[in-house]
Write a protein that binds this DNA or RNA. Structure first.
Lengths: 332, 332
DNA sequence: CGCGTTTGCGCAATCGGTTGTTCGCATTTT
DNA sequence: AAAATGCGAACAACCGATTGCGCAAACGCG
């Protein structure tokens, strides 16, 4: 049973080893001229006694915190996309010994952001963007704090990264059109969420390439719960659609549930596909065709981008940001 | 357009005001003897120039980081419970100018935790517990790092806080038994998640109080997707149940969907209730009776507990940790 | 008026590291 | 053999705050 252990400081190490703390510091950082055997001695001692430099003191001396700020809008933090994204970000950050400072923004999001910057609590910031407003980007540009954006950006000075939503949605839609479907409904949740807009663009792209025009009457947004889904499903059936494209997994599950209840056979009487694949679509009945993104990889990339800006030597290349259209029974 | 602004240090302030930095420090902290008018001058200047003390330097001097570690198991981080909980924690932390260091644990969770402690990156830790294993608690006890646990704890030395799952489940079950139901099925997801065990206990409690015994054949766990739900729903109908109690919102939505498809009228032929209320049950068809917890309040309480341990003067009392059984159409 | 107490403030050490510069010594060059 | 070079290690300043202690002026009181 390891007893309460003294916390060593660099001075303790220096004293016990009979060297100066400069030497200890250099031995550990590998910077500056220093003898090989000395390095070895120090390393061994440090290993033995489990010394860890105090990050706070290091931070003061180096003007560095080894913290990254992650800004997430509160109302979305539970969505599968964010879950995977956060997962990737954390995983990559930990590899480089950074930690993640979590900022859940609500109405007052700016105050938290400002605190991070003013108080020197982070070295850089990862900003997730859901709606295009929020002066956060402008604020960060002005503050000289390095940052990357997850989501769209029209500003060439801003490093941003995102899933290829538009392209992927185009491809999925194209696949359905190639199957001969001509009256596709598009169903989604929150209309102001940029991701839904990107997916809608892809949907339109595919149509236009073939000289088709999606019927505006077949666009249904704000489908967030079962009751709304029921109504939309009714309208879709009345409108004589031959296929339904859902913006995300949740909406898709709701719609599918409604179709089953109405006894509308998928895929026999109606094709169904989703523009985002989660854990539920594969094991649904029938399994639903959908687009799989490497969202975790996206998170890792975002993290690598910011680490790169902070001068870290990256150990891997960025992940290629692609996607897969996964064909399942719902479109057979 | 606010131009790039110089970052003031305490020395800058002192120089410009013609006082010592000791004075500035004292004026701002309110500690130590110092003249009223001096305090006023300093405060005004600081306000004017938006000076913010460098938290890292403060941290070194005071041995304090104003960071709280929040340990969350990666596989659950997206669940509604955690979302609300995190929300509450962050909200409360920000009020006291603390930030949240987010630790998503996977298999290797211990390494991250150890880093937080070894490197002095946090003042305290909030540990969320999902399964009862994990030597995290023992590790933290040994490390002398203040911490609280969200979840159950048998250890009297450990501060822990949780929703009253067992009591609430007992009450909900009791309500159903009082209605005359005698063959209740209990359906849930992950069986090793402690929260499901607590709820199951409450379910049993209610039965035993009345001298009944829940039929072990009516306990269905690991119902995670639609396909499994379909099978379970079949078995439930065969078993001639008169009511179904679901462990959480997601399972409940799946089961309800299955019932609708089979044309089984809820509540006419089957009563349905959920032991956790989320955003989906109220707007479902029919709306489902369920237990509402103040999970956000739980998060805030956990945060207040740890802040208290860290010597912060709390501005509010703890929230009373109660719950409501919300009666809806599904049990009428 | 003299003396003890209180008040306001600054000096300097400290927290635990990093880093530019110097210094002694061994090795190589001429 | 003297001068130039290179190497390893230490000195001391510094990062930006906090804090124990001491000093001088102002105050209270008999």
């Amino acid at each position: 049973m390891a007893q309460e252990r003294k916390k060593y400081t660099i001075d303790d190490i220096a004293r016990e080893l009979g060297v100066s703390k400069t030497t200890v510091s250099r031995a550990l950082s590998g910077k500056g001229r220093i003898g090989k055997d000395t390095v070895e001695r120090v390393r061994a001692f440090v290993e033995e006694h489990e010394y860890r430099p105090n990050r706070v003191a290091q931070g003061l001396a180096r003007s560095k915190t080894y913290n990254l700020g992650l800004v997430i809008p509160g109302e979305y933090s539970g969505m599968p996309f964010f879950r995977d994204c956060i997962d990737g970000i954390c995983q990559e950050a930990y590899r480089y010994n950074y930690d993640i400072l979590f900022v859940v923004t609500r109405e007052d999001g700016r105050a938290q952001l400002q605190r991070l910057v003013d108080n020197h609590k982070v070295d850089g910031i990862i900003l997730t963007r859901t709606v295009m407003n929020s002066g956060h980007v402008e604020f960060l540009k002005k503050s000289r704090m390095p940052f990357v954006v997850i989501g769209p950006s029209d500003d060439p000075e801003v490093t941003s990264i995102d899933n290829p939503n538009r392209e992927a949605s185009r491809e999925l839609t194209d696949f359905l059109l190639m199957k001969g479907l001509r009256r596709l409904a598009l169903v989604g949740g929150n209309a102001s969420h940029y991701v839904n807009r990107s997916r809608k663009r892809g949907f339109n792209d595919a149509h236009q390439e073939k000289g088709f025009h999606p019927d505006p009457a077949l666009l249904f947004m704000e489908v967030e719960d079962y009751r709304k889904a029921v109504r939309v499903a009714d309208q879709i059936m009345l409108a004589e659609c031959d296929g339904i494209v859902c913006m995300d997994e949740m909406v898709c599950a709701l719609i599918l549930s409604c179709l089953r209840e109405k006894g509308i056979a998928v895929p026999a009487r109606m094709k169904l596909a989703s523009m985002y694949d989660g854990s539920q679509l594969e094991s649904n009945l029938p399994p639903v065709t959908s687009i799989r993104f490497d969202t975790k990889g996206l998170g890792r990339n975002a993290c690598m981008e910011i680490l790169g800006m902070l001068g870290e030597e990256l150990r891997d290349d960025l992940f290629p940001m692609n996607y897969q259209v996964i064909l399942r029974e719902s479109t057979q």
